[in-house]
Amino acid sequence: MSTTTPLRLAVILGSTREGRFGPTVADWFVRQAQRRSELDVDFIDLAEHPLPAVMSRTPSAEDKELLAAVSPRLAEADAFVVITPEYNHSFPAPLKHAIDWHYTQWQAKPVGFVSYGGLGGGLRAVEQLRLVFAELHATTVRDSVSFHSVWSCFDEQGELVDGTVAEGAAKGMLDQLIWWGLALRQARADRPYGN
């Protein structure tokens, strides 16, 4: 693949709670990412794609059907952005479940983060996710987007009240993600990653 072929970016919304604010944040971020000609964006809302409740080394036919809606899309992605709230100083259980159901799909690929919450803006969730993705041989980019007191950041139509800081943060994070995405895609093509 050439450096002119757009990177396949999977944007994953990790919250599945009823009444969640995540779709508002996700809609805003997906629009930011879609403005980048270097990216082909695939949005995965975990609330719309429930995964098997029990993990098994030999998934049943029903489990395989549930996984088929997500697993190939993660495998095809060159990079990821995880959108997460902070629940009890951590990230949502459905997000961890989705991460744990997969392994090779994350390897040697970059991961960026968009977080949201109260005063902490979801940053504690992101710090924990960095440890999880390191264990899966993924590379997390340094910069992220975080919305502190998120409910006051957006108006009733789901638009940012003042987008200057968030748009700048999104640009910086996407710049890093694209750099790493192109570099790692070429590296995987030259020499497949694995043990």
Rank of each mutant, 00 (worst) to 15 (best):
V25A: 00
V150K: 02
G112A: 02
V25N: 01
Q176M: 09
S90P: 11
E135S: 10
T5V: 15
S56L: 01
A93S: 15
D175E: 13
E48P: 04
A138P: 01
K96H: 09
G172C: 08
D63F: 07
W106Y: 10
F21P: 03
L131V: 11
A183L: 08
H49C: 08
V54G: 01
L123T: 10
V145M: 04
L51F: 04
P23G: 07
D42Y: 11
Q32I: 06
L123E: 12
A77N: 03
Q157H: 15
D63M: 01
V81C: 05
P23W: 05
R124Y: 14
V41N: 12
T84R: 01
A98V: 07
N195Q: 15
F80W: 03
A77M: 01
N195A: 15
Q186A: 14
V145F: 03
A169W: 09
A93G: 12
V70H: 00
F29C: 03
L46R: 00
I83Q: 04
T58L: 05
E48I: 07
G19D: 02
P72C: 00
L174C: 03
A108Q: 13
Q107F: 12
A69Y: 10
S56P: 08
H97M: 13
T24S: 06
R130S: 04
G122V: 00
Q176P: 08
R36E: 15
S149W: 13
E135M: 05
A187G: 09
G163H: 02
V41F: 11
V145D: 08
A75I: 03
S60L: 02
A68G: 12
D42W: 10
L46E: 06
A138M: 03
V25Y: 03
R31V: 09
D175V: 05
A10L: 05
D143K: 13
P23I: 06
A134W: 10
S152H: 12
L74G: 08
D162M: 00
Y116I: 00
V25T: 02
R31P: 02
V141D: 10
G168E: 13
R8T: 13
T139C: 12
L39D: 08
R57T: 14
R31M: 11
A77R: 06
T58R: 14
P192H: 09
E18M: 12
Q128K: 02
V145H: 08
I83H: 06
A33W: 04
A166F: 07
R31E: 15
V70R: 00
D45C: 05
Q128G: 10
R35W: 10
G172M: 00
D40V: 02
T58M: 11
D175Y: 01
R20D: 01
V141L: 08
G117W: 04
L129A: 05
G158D: 00
R73P: 07
W106H: 09
P192I: 06
S71R: 09
F133Y: 03
P94R: 05
V81N: 01
L67G: 11
V54K: 03
D100S: 01
H97W: 14
L131C: 13
F80T: 05
D155I: 05
G168W: 09
S2T: 10
V145R: 04
A125V: 07
A53G: 14
P85S: 08
L67Y: 10
V11C: 02
D175N: 14
E135K: 08
D155V: 04
V141F: 09
A108S: 15
R36D: 14
